[in-house]
Amino acid sequence: MIKGKECRKFSPETMQLLFTAIDEDDVVDESVSLPVVINLQCSQEDIKNNYALCIQHWEEGFTRRMLLGLILKVSGGAGLNEEERRQLKNIRSRYKHLRFAQRLYSKNHRSMFFFSKITMFLGRFQDAFRNDKTEEITFYSRLLRIYLTPPFWLWVKYSVRHVSLDSVSAFIHYRQQQILKLKALIASPQLTGKEFHTVRKIISQQVSYYDTLRAIKPADNEAREISRFLAAINGLMGDRHDEMVADSLSGRKSYKEKVSMDLDIRQRLELLVERYPVGQH
């Protein structure tokens, strides 16, 4: 189990490297490909340090009052200026990155219940805000105000620092199983919105691992290369998923309707599956 006082504290330079890596997760770099062989090996110290950095990234990026203020402003109909929109986006990004870390590194590969709920509600609140859905904004702002009360906040902060981390072999096995699941999903020529979102979640988890690793080990060129390749997929899928959500909210097309995956996305996913070692570790 990792406890608060056992967490390594990282320098501002490392924190900035992680912020930059995550900020680039929607940027498509056409010049980056994958290594011929992807090395899955890591150490127990790597797992512990990666999770500790993700906690620090979440804790130091904002305050409870800041997030609550943004939610109240949106729900009150005042709207947000450009800087406030960026703040809300970055806060949600910090929640997502730590949720991915919990799913990656914990023994049960699940996010803490309340933490996961807040992350999900923030996402739906953002979608409603972007698409000007007043009823949904009101609904999710009420839920978030409850989850951001001091008792919930203190419990969430405690829970994220008291997590049983997985062993190296089990961690590698989990990542391999995720790629096998990805392979099975993309074997279908068409995907529903939910299936498409599942594929993206697998990619987002993978890229979050390499983003964190490259921040801690900036000389690891392979980690950076894989991070940038996965970021391209993540960005392309993110744009497409935003369209699917908007179509669903407007009633133009059901989220359950199957659609063909863009060729560019499919080819990148197939290359990842081809080069990812899933048979041994």
Rank of each mutant, 00 (worst) to 15 (best):
I179N: 04
F196H: 08
L154M: 14
S164Q: 10
F171G: 07
K157P: 00
K201H: 14
I179F: 11
L182N: 08
P189K: 02
T198M: 08
Q178A: 01
S167I: 02
V199A: 13
I186F: 06
F196N: 07
V156M: 15
L185E: 04
I179V: 15
Q178K: 05
S208D: 09
R161E: 13
V163E: 03
Q190S: 14
Y209V: 00
R200I: 00
Y209F: 11
D211Q: 12
R161H: 14
L165H: 04
I179G: 04
V168L: 03
S159G: 00
V156W: 06
H162P: 01
V199L: 09
K157F: 05
V199Y: 09
Y210K: 02
E195Y: 03
R161L: 05
L154E: 14
A170T: 06
A170K: 12
Q205I: 01
L213Y: 10
L191C: 07
R175Q: 11
S204R: 10
Q176H: 03
L191Q: 14
P189N: 05
A187T: 03
V199K: 05
T192V: 11
Y209M: 09
F171Y: 15
T192P: 06
Q177H: 11
A184N: 15
W155P: 00
A184C: 11
Q190W: 07
Q190C: 10
T192K: 11
S204H: 11
Y210E: 05
S167C: 01
A170G: 00
V168F: 03
I172D: 03
Q205E: 15
L154V: 06
Q190P: 01
K194M: 12
A184G: 12
K201W: 09
S188D: 14
S164H: 06
